[in-house]
């Protein structure tokens, strides 16, 4: 498998606090990579580094063969094929579900094609019955799906999911697993940032664990989660 995204020795600090330190990892094309670590480990900072909200102080990130620089704005990275969800879903609350997706689809399509694209995305995410509901009135799990649906309207290669399982009940989680599998089968590479470890074991083919901004472990989910240093980070890290 070829490499889609590569972080090479990246570091960033905020006012003397090292949020991410000398971190290197690779995301392979077509995989669902789990990205885990205790609270404050630097996961969200990593997403912000990849999407371009922050620039790393040192090190570099390569996406799809292109080395990302200051010139690659958040927007440009999206059009290179990146997408991200937020921990708290952020629908365009003043629009219907359909228009939420349609607006994003307009970027790469004509009006007619954007309507087609919107319908296709609604079908893929099984959100057809929600199409004309005001997005501000969606229940929480459907908001999370809407975040994903909007990203899909951009035809992404790579989606970063930031805690999409938090706050869902087991039934809703099952549905989300199925959706993630469908997306992955459609050829989208997924970086799965999650606290719910059961979900990680369920959907990821590989995981990376970071702690205090540093690389900690990497490997097959079940095996990695049993490693003493990982358990230590999760249990001990919170205590200290």
């Amino acid at each position: 498998m070829s490499i889609l995204l590569e972080a090479n020795d990246i570091s960033i600090s905020f006012g003397g606090i090292h949020a991410v330190q000398n971190l290197s990892f690779q995301v392979k094309k077509g995989e669902v990579l789990g990205f885990i670590g205790p609270n404050g480990a630097g996961k969200s900072t990593c997403i912000n580094l990849i999407t371009g909200v922050y620039m790393p102080d040192t090190g570099s990130i390569t996406f799809d063969g292109v080395k990302l620089t200051e010139k690659h704005t958040i927007r440009e990275r999206v059009h290179m094929g990146m997408g991200r969800t937020f921990q708290t879903p952020r629908p365009f609350g003043n629009m219907t579900v359909y228009d939420n997706i349609f607006t994003v689809a307009l970027q790469q399509n004509s009006f007619a094609a954007a309507h087609e694209k919107t319908k296709e995305v609604l079908k893929l995410t099984e959100m057809e019955h929600w199409a004309d509901v005001a997005s501000a009135k969606l229940p929480i799990e459907m908001r999370k799906w809407l975040d994903l649906a909007r990203i899909l309207a951009n035809d992404p290669k790579f989606i970063m999911m930031d805690e999409v399982m938090a706050g869902l009940n087991p039934n809703e989680m099952e549905n989300s697993f199925a959706l993630i599998e469908r997306l992955n089968q459609a050829g989208i590479t997924i970086l799965f940032i999650e606290h719910v470890l059961r979900a990680v074991v369920r959907v990821c083919s590989r995981v990376i664990v970071i702690n205090e901004g540093r690389f900690l472990a990497e490997g097959e989910p079940r095996e990695v989660l049993d490693r003493p240093e990982v358990i230590e980070a999760y249990i001990g890290g919170k205590r200290s």
Binding site: I74, R75, P91, F92, G93, N94, F102, V104, R150
Partner: peptide, 20 residues
């Protein structure tokens, strides 16, 4: 017009979806 309404809805989300 559509993009503008999206910006009003949530500007951060609009940026993260590639809207200039």
């Amino acid at each position: 017009g559509y993009y503008l309404k999206a910006i009003k809805g949530d500007e951060d989300a609009a940026i993260s979806l590639g809207i200039d």
